[in-house]
Nucleic acid binder design. Structure first.
Length: 365
RNA sequence: UGCCUCGUGGCCAAGCGGUAAGGCACCACACUUUGACUGUGGCAUGCGCUAGUUCGAAUCUAGCCGAGGCAG
């Protein structure tokens, strides 16, 4: 059986490749490059501009070394235009509407588990594999054994067909074990730091990064309790609900958080205090819902990556969207994914469209 | 014009003769495949300015500058 594995140049995919070999598959590596700093005008806030070799190429070199060591071939494909069209454009359009998108979820849906798969099929793959921390058992998507690294949140927009031919070889390992294996095989990636930031792009100063694509739009910051103007913001797209840092307003005893936006008046609403009622809600409407299993209405959910599972109930609305009810949660943010779980089983997910409290849409969101 | 009060880091604010608390903001780091949240650390050789008194002043005195207030 032939498996094409996405090699990122990181430790996880390296070890995933090892495990596939151990399991007797014929393993073929495929490296993707989806972001180009100069083509994509990624200038402001880019910490790697002066590097002699860009991070994507450094990653490719690492992947190449690992593949050589493991004696597997490495192919390469660029989806720079496709990434822009399917992921980054979505990302920017969402930001323009004041929402907080999750580009990596769309990257998985349109790039890693679509275009990548098609490319793998060209190589006569029977299966494709990635270094995600997640498990597929009997066709069901389950959280990784290492709950701290679990990435099912990012896989919640995949459909069952996409999962059909996928293997997650390290989903049953802890991160520590993964590194131990890499170390044992003397892989160059064994001690490589986990990558963060938007997938394929990397760590950025977010405000400066966005300024490359979305111009500043200065407006008032208003205390939602007192309606007092407290200062100026530089553009609503630069802030997310529940955000504290970057507001640049001092003088208060308690911390201040972004809690709402008015697109038409270009107002950023803030509130004082981490427990301010304006930060809380008890219902949300979820759109673009994607179910693996829609039979369990009492379950749990995450509304943001790394949030603890929250007890929720859901029901269908007439338009096919889903109404989720929960008990007073903080900083639920339109544009972010809501992903449903029953224990470790991922039931599906969608995108937060509307946030509600006391049976009403929050007027300030 | 006279009298009174007040001027401490970006903001708020302790200290009131013994050698600059704290909070917010900001910065760095940790955490993290989404922008968070959270945590840890850093952040005034100087307290409007200039002279004095004193072993020693942000703290006392005088003048000046500035912000308020009362009287006219």
């Amino acid at each position: 059986m032939k498996v094409v594995i996405g090699m990122s140049g990181g430790v996880d995919s390296s070890v995933a490749a090892i495990r596939l070999k151990q399991q007797g598959y014929e393993v073929i590596g495929l490296f993707m490059r989806n972001w180009d700093t100069s083509i994509n005008q990624d200038i402001l806030g880019n910490p790697n501009l002066n590097n002699p070799i860009c991070p994507q190429e450094a990653d490719y070199n690492d992947a190449l070394k690992v593949c050589k060591k493991l004696d597997i071939p490495l192919h390469r494909v660029d989806f720079i235009k496709e990434y822009w069209d399917n992921v980054f454009n979505y990302f920017l359009e969402e930001l323009k509407t004041g929402r907080t998108p999750n580009p990596d979820i769309m990257c998985n849906k349109y790039i890693k588990f679509d275009l990548f798969v098609k490319e793998a099929l060209k190589l006569q793959a029977d299966y494709i594999a990635t270094g995600h921390y997640a498990q597929i058992i009997n066709g069901k998507l389950l959280k990784a054994i290492d709950l701290n690294k679990d990435q099912t949140y990012f896989l919640s927009q995949l459909n069952k067909e996409q999962l059909h031919k996928v293997l997650f070889p390290i989903g049953d390992l802890n991160k520590k074990q993964v590194r131990e294996i890499a170390y044992k095989y003397e892989l160059i990636t064994a001690n490589k730091k986990d990558s963060t930031g938007i997938c394929f792009i990397g760590e950025r100063n977010f405000t400066k990064f966005l300024a490359n694509y979305l111009p500043n739009q200065i407006g008032d910051i208003i205390n939602i309790d007192t309606k007092e103007i407290l200062g100026k913001h530089i553009g609503l797209m630069y802030y997310t609900i529940g955000q504290r840092r970057g507001l640049a307003i001092g003088g208060t005893t308690k911390r201040m958080y972004a809690c709402g936006k008015d697109l038409t008046k270009n107002i950023l609403y803030v509130c004082i205090g981490a427990n301010n009622p304006y930060l809380y809600s008890d219902q949300a409407i979820i759109e673009q819902i994607n179910w693996f299993d829609n039979t369990v209405h009492n379950c749990s959910a995450k509304f943001r990556y790394r949030q603890n599972d929250q007890k929720v109930q859901w029901e269908y609305l007439d338009d096919g969207n889903v109404l989720v009810s929960y008990n007073n949660l903080k900083a639920i943010t339109p544009g972010q994914a809501c992903v449903f779980y029953l224990d470790n089983l991922c039931l599906g997910g969608g995108i937060i469209k509307e946030v509600r409290k006391n049976n009403q849409k929050l007027w300030y969101l």
